[in-house]
Design a protein around this nucleic acid. Structure first.
Lengths: 190, 190
DNA sequence: TGACAAGCGGAATGATCCTTCCGTATGCTG
DNA sequence: CAGCATACGGAAGGATCATTCCGCTTGTCA
């Protein structure tokens, strides 16, 4: 157990950390995971050095944001549990997760399984996995979902979703809502 | 109409062109679209200059391979038309396309909608689109497919497929076969 | 076989980005 | 308010790659 006692940050440092996170969030949302550190620094009105003081690498910065987002998704799924019918609870939870993610290119890429960030977000994924499993279990006892369904199925679907949503911006004939409609139908019991 | 009369290539040049294509195919299959030109040249036992003599940019090289692959997919779908039941014809065609693509990382990335290559492959996509439309139409008159189904749905699904298949290698809990099973079920009439 | 266009190899160029470094500035503590 | 640790800015360093260039080699054709 390594209880690193972290001395409280200096006031300006704390402030800058927030500015960097906000700027990074915006930059990644727009440009995806290959937004540039210099751009992030500029948006935060801070030097690149400052970005690196707070996050040792770009990957760490992404991880921080990803972690935050995954926590929100988990909250959302946990809260969906009592959304009436189990099937309704599961799908509305998934839809809400999708809506929450679709506007942010980088998050779509992460959900889509971009290698560099997946590992980093693993912590958040644990809670997500559990919440998903619970929702699926409920739907199964109800007979609404195909009975071989598993959380991995949702993971597959969401991975596809993330990619399609990210690509949709690039202007293809893609449509993540339509995709999700069909994929979730495929998860239903026949 | 610009009928560029292309003088026949010198024998060694023709040979090298084939070597480059083969090497590129192998390199891209393994490393995905960001395989390096230098690696391709090395595999082909050729200098980078030679690669560039035959394909003015990396993108052009990718496009050539993509085009070739899309033609094969179109052939495959067209041939599926008389595979018995219309629904069977459609799905078995799609499964075969998937199998043909899944082993090649770069092709998965392209199918998944990687921007740089999509435009290049557009030619092949036209035939694909038509073949898909025909299969869907047949399945619709048969009542086997959801009646709002369109070729774009297949495109969405295959885009997801490509990404999942590419990511699967990276070792996640992803499984493109399982994904495709579910997604195609979602396309079925209920 | 000789001459020349067509090709070839691969070092060098140039662009893009992440990351590091260090001189300067600023919050905090006594 | 002085003195110092903490933070800051942003120029410079270093990697990685696509692409270009040019002196040399090799088919081809008369």
């Amino acid at each position: 157990m390594s209880t690193t006692v972290t001395k409280p940050l200096r006031a300006d440092a704390r402030r800058n950390r927030q500015k960097v996170l906000a700027a990074a969030s915006a930059a990644f949302a727009e440009a995806g995971l290959d937004a540039q550190i210099e751009d992030i620094a500029r948006r935060a009105r801070v030097g690149v050095g400052t970005v690196y003081r707070h996050f040792p690498t770009k990957e760490a910065l992404v991880a921080a944001l990803a972690h935050q987002h995954f926590e929100q998704l988990a909250d959302l799924l946990e809260a969906s549990a009592d959304d009436g019918e189990p099937w309704e609870a599961l799908t509305s939870g998934i839809w809400r997760c999708a809506e929450m993610t679709a506007g942010d290119v980088a998050l779509c890429e992460i959900i889509g399984g971009h290698p560099s960030a997946v590992a980093a977000a693993a912590v958040g994924q644990q809670r997500l996995q559990t919440a998903t499993a619970r929702l699926i279990e409920a739907a199964r006892t109800n007979g609404a979902i195909r009975d071989d369904a598993s959380p991995d199925d949702v993971r597959n679907i969401m991975c596809g979703f993330g990619h399609i949503a990210a690509a949709q911006r690039a202007g293809g004939a893609l449509d993540w809502r339509r995709y999700l409609t069909i994929a979730l139908d495929g998860l239903r019991a026949r």
